[in-house]
Nucleic acid binder design. Structure first.
Ligand SMILES: [Mg+2]
Length: 191
DNA sequence: TACCGTCTAAACAAAT
DNA sequence: TATTTGTTTAGACGGT
């Protein structure tokens, strides 16, 4: 039904080098909507994680994971075929992701729903924390820009980095909103 | 050097 | 029957 798997991509060499298959450089501000030729600086595990976390019920079928990824990271609209294979491969092999038990009764089309194994959710959060442009690695930008024009005080508050009774405190769902905010500040030349 | 996480390809089976 | 979904093996790569 969905005519995906569109190829017709770069035929072979790309002279300049900055063609499609390049991971986005860590030091340049990244916007998934505009940098459609850079591979997002997130692993498939992180992408899947964010997709599931933003789902109301924290569960998604494979197809919806695809959809979340392409809408939030348009790079994949024209990415070389194979990334869906990688998604499925990751879901299956990565212990952080598990299928929801096929509940008798209501079934959602094909396949199963996928969820994050609560025991391994901290692992995914840690992985996400280590990526660029994650709230935890970018919050200082918001802080140093939005406030203070005159305060000569340095570092301000150390930031709420961490510990927390965690569990589901640092919502990765906030990630995109925060990243957007940071991006806007960047465009205004304030950080 | 080994190990780990990651990515990509591919073979294959099962479900639909 | 064809497509989708899921599992598995294999190899490559960069970082620790
Ligand atoms: Mg799994």
């Amino acid at each position: 039904l969905d005519g995906d798997d569109d190829d017709v991509e770069n035929a072979g060499t790309d002279a300049g080098g900055c063609g499609a298959l390049t991971r986005h450089p860590p030091h340049i501000p990244y916007n998934p909507k505009t940098h459609v030729h850079s591979k997002p600086p997130y692993s498939f595990s992180c992408l899947i994680f964010m997709a599931i976390e933003e789902a109301a019920l924290k569960r998604l079928p494979v197809k919806d994971i695809y959809q979340w990824i392409v809408t939030h990271f348009p790079y994949f609209q024209n990415a070389p075929t194979g990334w869906k294979n990688s998604v499925r491969h990751n879901l299956s092999l990565n212990k952080c992701f598990m299928k929801v038990d096929k509940e008798r009764g209501h079934n959602i089309g094909k396949g199963s729903l996928w969820m994050v194994d609560p025991d391994y959710r901290p692992n995914l959060l840690q992985a996400l924390r280590k990526t660029p442009y994650h709230p935890y690695s970018q919050l200082h930008i918001l802080q140093n820009s939005c406030n203070s024009q005159g305060s000569s005080i340095g570092p301000m508050k150390p930031l709420p980095l961490a510990p927390r009774p965690n569990v589901n405190v640092p919502s990765p769902g906030l990630f995109l909103a925060l990243r957007q905010k940071i991006w806007q500040l960047h465009l205004r030349g304030r950080c």
